[in-house]
């Protein structure tokens, strides 16, 4: 069976055997189902068995922290092979094999279906859209008065907590996505934030988009202060908050172009904060002006 999904305006197809258990894990993707299957950026097909890749060549390993997924990148017969583990020290639990234009991917599930599916599709989405004015972000996003507010920060900083503080203290505020929203520079130059099937531990899979009101980089502190970031500061804060292999020149160029447009268009702030209501109010009052 083949199903097509549309996330942030980009279509992709997933191909798996009709009765495969993995379909039961596709609930988060349901709001994104798309009837028209034309013009897919990529197709990801489930493999029952991996080809023998023992002659693979190691390229690099990436991991953003001991509690973050580890991704080993190899080159194998003119393709990229990614071996993924849920944690830095964990064994490999999923394989992703893709052509170098990121159009035809095959993946293999070893452990948790959700981890394998989510990681494979997120990586493919990030790579396939890197040159299309699109960034797959690591961020928690709230919506207030029709505008999206993105909270950035290292893992464990309190992005989700800050979103919850907005929702609990500011009337008419809701969650758009808690972990992996998508930013896209639209044709008219406006920057929009989209919900996605990937939202970390919070089930919040919304197929909607809103213009971005502000981007806020969070840092834990003993008191609450906020200031506008310079262009370079904002670029750097964004740079560590989206995925992509920068050593692939075309990908780095695409990501740079989008990031440059985003930080040139959207007001970006640095918020030093406590996990309290006052932080949410200070932030909201400043960034919604």
């Amino acid at each position: 069976m083949k199903k097509t999904y549309r996330v942030a305006g980009h279509k992709f197809a997933v191909v798996m055997p009709d009765n495969d258990a993995a379909w039961n894990e596709m609930g988060p993707y349901e709001p994104f189902v798309c009837v028209d299957a034309s013009d897919c950026l990529f197709t990801a097909e489930l493999l029952e068995a991996m080809p023998d890749t023992s002659d693979k060549q190691k390229v690099t390993v990436s991991c953003e922290g001991s509690d973050m997924p580890r991704i080993e990148l190899y080159e194998w017969r003119g393709q990229w092979l990614m071996e993924m583990a849920p944690l830095l020290e964990a064994p490999v639990r999923a394989y992703l094999l893709t052509d170098k234009t990121f159009q035809e991917a095959k993946f293999r599930i070893l452990g948790s279906i959700r981890f394998s599916l989510g990681t494979s599709l997120m990586l493919m989405f990030a790579f396939a859209t890197a040159r299309k004015n699109t960034l797959l972000m690591h961020s928690s996003v709230t919506v207030k008065d029709g505008k999206g507010y993105l909270f950035l920060g290292k893992s464990g900083t309190g992005k989700s907590t800050h979103s919850q503080l907005w929702i609990n203290n500011i009337e008419g505020c809701s969650l758009l996505n808690d972990d992996n929203p998508v930013l896209r520079v639209m044709e008219d130059g406006e920057v929009h934030v989209f919900g996605s099937p990937w939202s970390g531990k919070t089930p919040c899979y919304q197929n909607i988009d809103v213009p971005v009101g502000a981007i806020v980089n969070l840092r834990q502190a003993k008191k609450n202060t906020i200031r506008r970031m310079s262009l370079v500061e904002a670029y750097a804060a964004m740079y560590v908050s989206f995925s992509g292999y920068r050593f692939i020149k075309e990908m780095a160029d695409g990501l740079h172009a989008t990031n440059e447009k985003v930080v040139g268009t959207v007001p970006c702030y640095a918020l030093d904060c406590l996990p309290d209501a006052e932080a949410a109010w200070l932030c909201y009052k400043t960034v919604s002006q």
Binding site: V59, T60, S62, L231, V232, Y235, A236, Y239, V240, R246, F247, A252, H256, E260, V263, G264
Partner: peptide, 29 residues
């Protein structure tokens, strides 16, 4: 090797992009 000069508006930054410096997350104004 591995550093790339990027223009950002009127400013310039040197970014660690290559495999040689991967993981450095380094940026120089």
């Amino acid at each position: 090797k591995g550093y790339r000069l990027r223009q950002l508006g009127k400013e310039y930054i040197l970014v660690a992009e290559g495999l040689e410096v991967m993981g450095a997350n380094q940026m120089i104004s």
